[in-house]
Simulated assay, not measured.
Amino acid sequence: MTFTKTTEQSSKYEHLEKMSVTALLSNINQEDKTVPFAIEKALPQIESLVTQIVAKMKLGGRLFYIGAGTSGRLGVVDASECPPTFGVPFDLVVGIIAGGDAAIRRAVENAEDNATQAWRDLTEYNINENDVVIGIAASGTTPYVIGGLQACNENNIVTGSISCNAGSPLSETAKFPIDVVVGPEFVTGSSRMKAGTAQKLVLNMISTATMIQLGKVKGNKMVDMQLSNRKLVDRGIIMIIGEIPVSYEEAAELLNIHGSVRKAVDSYNSKY
């Protein structure tokens, strides 16, 4: 199959600089609406990868995201949100970006072109066969990401990928590829737009579905969330009141004693 980078094809919109603000926003919005439909076509691929992640995590494994530029930043964001949302250790889901943490804010020259660095970055975490590594690259051609997955394959580590070009070298390398083909961007080649949105949505799906499968959500509530600010403490109190027959003040006291919604509710239920 011939590989074509649809993410690099010319925008179907011309003379953007002549458009009004209304027209610009409307047309960007029209393009953004197509993203969930592209993801829907990839649901079977996403399911296969999530199933692998859940199985490996039940064996004590971890999930790693590797990427460069926007893709790397999106992986870092998703990984960093798992501990506060689901109360998991900070090193259960790890985001690694080409060029290191400095590249989160500012591009690091040539970092994505190094095909051997990702594996070196992963080995700093003592990567092993219980772990899963997902390579993220809108183009599907980033050497840093492809090289990382190739090394993982050689070391019997489960690999997945998220790309926005069908049949990409990255998809061919990953054991469990996800292809979300969103088509040309509104601004030609600006894959931080639809492609970035698609990657973010898929990452949300992967981490959320995985954590639910691992029992980190009860009903539809984040019962293991970290209580890191007043808003979240109040949310936790309301959750407790919804689960057991106590007042706001009693729920607050239970939460203060036990430190999480789950532990507060379980403690109460064990007594009554």
Rank of each mutant, 00 (worst) to 15 (best):
A118N: 08
T22Y: 09
D91F: 13
I212F: 03
R262W: 03
V21Q: 08
S163V: 13
G148L: 04
Y144L: 14
Y65K: 12
E31F: 15
I134S: 06
G75I: 05
M239R: 09
A251I: 03
N27Y: 05
E243T: 06
G215P: 13
A111N: 00
K175D: 09
G242I: 05
Q45E: 01
V132W: 10
T6S: 07
V35W: 14
A166L: 13
G183R: 15
S26G: 02
S163T: 10
V246E: 02
T141S: 04
V93W: 06
V265R: 13
R192P: 05
K175S: 08
K216R: 09
P177N: 00
I240S: 04
R192Y: 04
I53R: 03
S11P: 15
Q150V: 06
E129I: 12
L59T: 03
N128F: 12
N229F: 03
G183I: 02
R73F: 00
F90R: 12
D32Q: 14
L149T: 05
K216A: 07
I96G: 11
Y248T: 00
V182G: 07
A107S: 07
A102L: 02
F64K: 03
N114I: 02
L201W: 11
G167T: 14
S11L: 15
S71R: 03
T22A: 06
S10E: 01
E14G: 02
F90P: 03
M57Y: 11
R262I: 01
E31A: 12
A102G: 09
T4H: 06
T197I: 02
T51L: 15
F64Y: 06
I206E: 05
A198V: 05
T2C: 11
G60S: 11
M193G: 07
Q45N: 05
M211I: 10
M193C: 04
A264T: 13
F37L: 12
I157F: 08
C82R: 13
A68C: 00
S139L: 01
D266R: 14
A68T: 09
A118K: 07
T142K: 00
F176I: 11
Q226S: 15
S26W: 01
I127P: 13
L43Y: 12
Q45D: 06
S20Q: 07
Q199W: 10
V145D: 06
S270H: 01
E109K: 00
L232C: 00
G147A: 08
T70A: 04
I157E: 14
E8V: 08
S191N: 09
